[in-house]
Nucleic acid binder design. Structure first.
Lengths: 115, 115
DNA sequence: GGCACCTGCTAACTTTCCTTGGCATGTGCA
DNA sequence: TGCACATGCCAAGGAAAGTTAGCAGGTGCC
């Protein structure tokens, strides 16, 4: 799956909004090197677990990272996160295409909204 | 120059944050078709000029669009905006590289911040 | 049992962003 | 002169995001 072909413009907005944050960018960068579990990653990044949890959740909601619950050798439950191999090439033309499938805030949500 | 090789991670965050907005995405899409002036574009998009101004300013600050002041046939000052031909390929590896040049919020702003 | 490590959640505060409305300026034309 | 169009700015309220602190649960080991 991954985010190869961004279908809806809403998805694009969500992904961009998710990546538009220094902490989340660091998380993606860290997970790009190697997967990690929450507490360890929090220490590595120098932020609180609560804060990291929120960011990880957003990244997961955008489909940029995935969680995998595992058991360590000593039987502790570790929640390992790994980055999704996404590729997103942003260009004016690409954005123009994505905008076609943007839902409008109030009225309806017709993709091909003519002006 | 355009945004061919995103230098600092801060720039990346700025560009992403700028694009992470439905209105600004629509603006980029509209300008990708053809350049336009503020009032006309506001009518075309169905938003107020004040709102469009703010979004255009952010887009310009991120280097995604450029303004060009011209005079119409009847002597009116028209501020034409056009999109910049940017190309930004987002991948985990690309982000990992950009993070290297992310400035930290409080302390200093050393690019190669060790963990 | 007590300590150290892991997990998750929620409430509340602070900060930032979005949006609107109003005001001021300048031009051309009837 | 008054209308229509263009430009810009600033203040203020509402909505959303970021962050912290605290609580509760689980396991292994001395």
């Amino acid at each position: 799956m991954s985010a190869a072909s961004p279908p809806t413009g809403d998805d694009l907005v969500r992904v961009l909004a998710t990546l538009a944050n220094p902490h989340r960018l660091r998380v993606v960068a860290a997970l790009a090197r190697e997967r990690a579990y929450v507490s360890g990653l929090a220490r590595q990044l120098g932020i609180s677990r609560a804060l990291l949890q929120v960011h990880l959740r957003k990244l997961a909601a955008a489909g940029l990272v995935t969680a995998r619950l595992e058991l360590s050798e000593d039987g502790k439950a570790m929640n390992y996160y790994e980055v999704e191999p996404f590729v997103l090439t942003l260009t004016p033309a690409f954005i123009a295409a994505a905008v076609e499938t943007l839902t409008v805030p109030d009225s309806g949500e017709q993709p091909g909204a003519q002006r």
